[in-house]
């Protein structure tokens, strides 16, 4: 049995003047503990798909099941990291990371302790009572990761979480996120338009083609890369090979 099952998913956006189909006939499964990347040019409905999986949008057709159950936001099964950190500027770092627990009323001393420990692991213990604007971009995104993990979601979705960061910070964070998720044995979906990031971080890469968004092709990342941290994976010879294959596939999408 699969952990996450998406079947014949279809979504169309309606406006007064048009009906735009963002996703058409998406079927895919994710196993527990797997790290998947959604790769594709802009306009292929990646963010729409994440919003549907998160239960924020009702699809016009098809179904999404997590452990054979329909998704409900109130159950906190899903964690979602956005492109920017969206830390609340009027809350301290501590209030920000405890937000999820506070919202769903599960803020027990034990969970609070766990969250503090997570913050410590991220090397951010000293900023606990600071405000977000006092932190650098990389630090803020790490705080956002703590906030997402605090509610202990079963499935983590990362919507281009590194795209607003400088390259050095991005590489460091990739290693940190990958390492953290492996330690907690979390299932994760990463949306990205960066081929290298997809290869370095994931177990499986799903390439989408645009208008309407469809699954174009699936690439399995070889075991020798899977077991390496992202930074080391980027220097492996197999990495370059896979990069070329996916690059050509993306080029062929453009020509269509």
């Amino acid at each position: 049995m699969d952990f996450l099952t998406i079947k014949n998913l279809h979504h169309t956006y309606f406006t007064k003047t048009s009906a735009t189909t963002a996703l058409s006939d998406i079927t895919l499964d994710v196993k527990e503990g797997e790290f998947i990347s959604f790769l594709g040019p802009s306009g292929c409905g990646k963010t729409t798909l994440l919003s549907i999986i998160a239960g924020l949008i009702n699809p016009t057709g098809g179904s999404v099941l997590l452990e054979n159950q329909p998704i409900k936001t109130s159950q906190n099964d899903i964690g979602y990291m956005l492109q920017q950190d969206y830390l609340f500027p009027w809350k301290t770092i501590e209030q920000n990371i405890l937000l999820g627990l506070k919202i769903n009323g599960t803020l027990t001393p034990e969970k609070k302790e766990n969250t503090s420990y997570l913050l410590k692991q991220m090397g951010l213990e000293h900023v606990r009572s600071s405000y977000p604007k006092q932190l650098s971009g990389g630090m803020r995104q790490r705080v956002a990761l703590v906030r997402t993990l605090a509610t202990e979601p079963k499935l983590l979705m990362l919507d281009e979480p590194f795209s607003a960061l400088d390259f050095q910070t991005k590489l460091k964070l990739e290693d940190l996120v990958s390492n953290t998720l492996k330690n907690f044995n979390k299932t994760a979906i990463l949306v990205t338009h960066d081929i290298g990031e997809a290869i370095a971080m994931s177990d499986r890469i799903i390439l989408f083609s645009p208008s309407p968004g469809k699954v174009h092709k699936t690439f399995l990342v070889p075991d020798e890369l899977k077991n390496l941290p992202p930074f080391k994976a980027r220097n492996h010879s197999v990495y370059t090979e896979l990069f070329q294959t996916i690059w050509k596939e993306l080029e062929s999408l453009d020509e269509k």
Binding site: K72, T73, S74, F88, L99
Partner: peptide, 24 residues
């Protein structure tokens, strides 16, 4: 996106108002 963050945590409309809309 602030309300989106809260909705993912399962926030009700009242909670979204109190935690994001009003302070912002």
């Amino acid at each position: 996106n602030y309300t989106k963050v809260l909705q993912i945590f399962g926030a009700t409309r009242t909670q979204s108002f109190k935690e994001a809309i009003l302070p912002a």
